[in-house]
């Protein structure tokens, strides 16, 4: 990376992180830049793949690919009030195809496959695997009973949804820990580059001075 790239990297990273200190205009500018760049990237990549997958064969005489561009026109017409409803035609087509494809796989993946995975013999090859399977079975029954809303479970049976709640809490705790680890992983990658890029160090120093001035200004108020 060149010096200017390093500087830009440092400025935009610290601008985004400045939200941790407080809401400010520098953060907003960086946020809008990021959103704009991301949208531009998607637009360019989308157009490039449309050229490759649809336009090239169309120009070679495979006219069926013309449908792609015909169906794209109503999306542009969305911006004009009188022609706006036309966008529903390609949207309906997309939703229909997407739902059809999605449903085909979702039932097997998320219901049948998961049920099959949960219904295993309790006794496994090793004691630890057996313990694992027992825990999965108890957790599955407990968590399912927690979401059983058609009847109010009372008496000694109410211990089952309570156990389910503990399993759900443990699961959410694990998910939170993983999320935290993931966020740190991303931050550490950027932080390493901030420290290692000479030009970015100047930006850190500049940011610290700005924060120090702001703290003093707040105190004086």
């Amino acid at each position: 990376m060149g010096a200017i790239e390093n500087l830009l990297f440092g400025i935009f990273t610290l601008a985004i992180w400045s939200l941790v200190y407080r809401e400010n205009i520098v953060y907003r500018i960086a946020e809008y830049f990021y959103t704009g760049f991301a949208a531009a990237l998607i637009l360019v990549q989308g157009w490039e793949s449309a050229k490759k997958i649809a336009l090239a064969p169309l120009l070679k005489g495979e006219y069926i690919w013309g449908l792609v561009f015909i169906l794209a026109i109503p999306f542009i017409l969305f911006f004009y009030k009188r022609t706006r409803p036309l966008y529903m035609i390609p949207t309906a087509l997309l939703v229909g195809i997407g739902t059809g494809i999605g449903m085909r796989g979702a039932i097997h993946t998320q219901i049948i496959g998961q049920l099959a995975g949960s219904m295993r013999p309790l006794i496994q090859a090793t004691p630890l695997d057996t313990l694992n399977t027992i825990l999965i079975t108890i957790g599955t029954f407990g968590a399912l009973s927690y979401f059983l809303f058609t009847t109010n479970i009372r008496g000694p049976l109410k211990v089952i949804p309570r156990i389910g709640r503990i399993f759900i809490m443990a699961g959410l705790g694990g998910a939170f820990a993983n999320t935290g680890m993931g966020r740190f992983a991303n931050m550490s990658g950027v932080l390493l580059n901030l420290w290692n890029k000479t030009e970015a160090i100047y930006v850190i120093a500049g940011a610290l001075i700005v924060i120090a001035i702001d703290v003093l200004r707040q105190r004086m108020k």
Partner: peptide, 24 residues
């Protein structure tokens, strides 16, 4: 990423996912 890892365990247990690398 770390945020998606917990969802993978059930798919690995059912054999639908062979294995995974989780986060950094």
């Amino acid at each position: 990423p770390g945020v998606s890892a917990p969802r993978m365990y059930s798919y690995m247990a059912s054999g639908q996912v062979y294995s995974m690398l989780s986060s950094l």
